[in-house]
């Protein structure tokens, strides 16, 4: 069955095989792996710097968000203060205007009353001074 009885005994092929593998090893070690290593290192460096940039950006974002929140709450506080003061000013102006209007009204009413009183007095005087005239006119 096993036509070759000594297939477990190596022959001169061993030397050729050593050469073949040494050549493969040489090419892989000299040409392939350094290039691969460079590519891998470069990529690793890129990933590292990208992660660092992301972390920096995240930190920046957090700071910006904090700043935004602070500014927003400041603005809200300022806005409510402005509204409050505006309301106060408005109320004051309204009260003032109302007071002025009331004074004006009173003044006008008083003036009108005075005018009426004057006119009434004048009319009454005239009536008292000229009753005869009035009666003579009636007889005619």
């Amino acid at each position: 069955m096993f036509t070759s009885a000594n297939f477990l005994v190596p022959n001169a092929t061993v030397l050729v095989e050593i050469g073949v593998f040494a050549a493969v090893l040489g090419v892989v070690a000299r040409f392939v792996l350094p290039r691969l290593r460079a590519a891998m290192d470069h990529r690793q460096e890129e990933i590292r710097s990208a992660i660092e940039a992301t972390q920096r950006a995240r930190q920046l974002l957090k700071t910006a968000e904090l700043d935004y929140e602070t500014r927003l709450s400041d603005a809200r506080r300022q806005a409510s203060a402005i509204i409050e003061s505006a309301r106060r000013v408005g109320a004051y102006l309204q009260a003032e205007a109302r007071k002025q209007a009331k004074e004006e009204h009173d003044r006008i009413v008083a003036r009108a009353q005075w005018d009426i009183d004057q006119a009434t007095a004048v009319a009454r005087d005239q009536l008292q001074q000229e009753p005869e005239d009035w009666t003579s006119t009636q007889s005619h």
């Binding site: 022959n11 001169a12 092929t13 095989e17 073949v20 050549a23 090419v27 892989v28 040409f31 392939v32």
Partner: peptide
Amino acid sequence: TFNIDTIAASLLAGIIVVGFGLYVRIRA
């Protein structure tokens, strides 16, 4: 004595490995 079939086959295997390796080197 040299086993030429083994030598040819191992050369082929070597060429394939080196070929893939050099392909990677060029296209890396």
